[in-house]
Design a protein around this nucleic acid. Sequence first.
DNA 1: GCATATTTGTCCGTATGTATA
DNA 2: CTATACATACGGACAAATATG
Lengths: 217, 217
Amino acid sequence: MSQGSTARAVGEHLSEWITEGRLAPGDKVSETSVASQLEVSRNTVREAFRLLAHDGLLVHEFNRGVFVPQVTSADVRDVYRLRLIIEPGVVRALTARDTHRLGTLEAAVAEARTAARRRDWPRVGTANMHFHRSLVALAGSPRLDVMMRRLTAELRLLFAVIDDPRYLYQPFVKRNKELLALMTKGRFEEGADYLESYLGDSEGAILAAFEERERTA
Amino acid sequence: MSQGSTARAVGEHLSEWITEGRLAPGDKVSETSVASQLEVSRNTVREAFRLLAHDGLLVHEFNRGVFVPQVTSADVRDVYRLRLIIEPGVVRALTARDTHRLGTLEAAVAEARTAARRRDWPRVGTANMHFHRSLVALAGSPRLDVMMRRLTAELRLLFAVIDDPRYLYQPFVKRNKELLALMTKGRFEEGADYLESYLGDSEGAILAAFEERERTA
DNA sequence: GCATATTTGTCCGTATGTATA
DNA sequence: CTATACATACGGACAAATATG
């Protein structure tokens, strides 16, 4: 309606429903129900489904419909394996003249700070995504950007499983800030090492939550 | 109809048209023309467009339609940058017990050999794609597999620009075979180094063709 | 295992808005 | 600036596949 396609708008809605837990992992997402709730045609809903399936936020099973992915600890490991390859690699490849291109990272850090002050943890999570996407964008590779967009989208899916988001999101604020400080000083090698251990900790925390959940279930 | 969706079948057709040059880079791909030529509905064509756009074989511009990507030397560099990160990394991470899991690679090498004997260069190209996809599959990462599928699809797009495919495809046959030999012996570090230089040469050859083309155009 | 109801996959016709000649 | 072409979106329809009782 306003700007962009309605299919994209429907996609945004669905994306929120997923990250807010209104749509739980494993849930079936019916074409007709979404179409009637958002008052759009079924065709448009199908278009939105494709967009989200593209980012891994929905899975499409032929003749059965679309579902919210049932993420497991294996997915956590896979996502973090790729993050550990990509993100420190990008930081390590930076040089002194990149210290002037960190504006978007600063913005993301500021966004996270104000959100944390307001105890708005979902927004802290969004800011964290912005930070890491901006970080990867420094590499200047369009294809890497697409891949990182996918990964951060799936990250939201993983975080959505966690009951208490604060416990996971809060550490990000400080650590992103510290990583940025290292990078501003041009200490990229140190930054990459810092990022590696930071990602390792993050993976460990999420993994623990998942394995606990998988044990009880 | 037969197996899978008709949208997928339409996607296969379009994919062939692109790699065969029937659809040239920069061409607009009209919904209605494809729908009438393949005798399917516009709706189905739109679904197929999304599928191919997902793999980078088509680009979608809002309110303007879909186009065959206008690939440039910058795209060559970007694709190879990612290949150089991913593929040698996978090989380096392998261990002795992976030497028994190289069956798909052997099959791809054999496929390339027989195709080369028949001077069927497009088929050699396909076999080469299979080889590198199988290689990355050894890492056991579903998300890396998806990414590699995208990259190889785009690779076909790059190769489609080259006039004489034999010149580019022929070296692959021998080099894939030699890489496989190293891997079979468990010499993964050497294999990774070999792959790096091999990819570097490949990039250089394609890049030269692109820069020549961009100079004349 | 069967009959039924639901839902998806596909198609068509039409209206509206956007881009471009 | 107007006119044309085309993409976006709608709503209804039907067959086929799936899920349900």
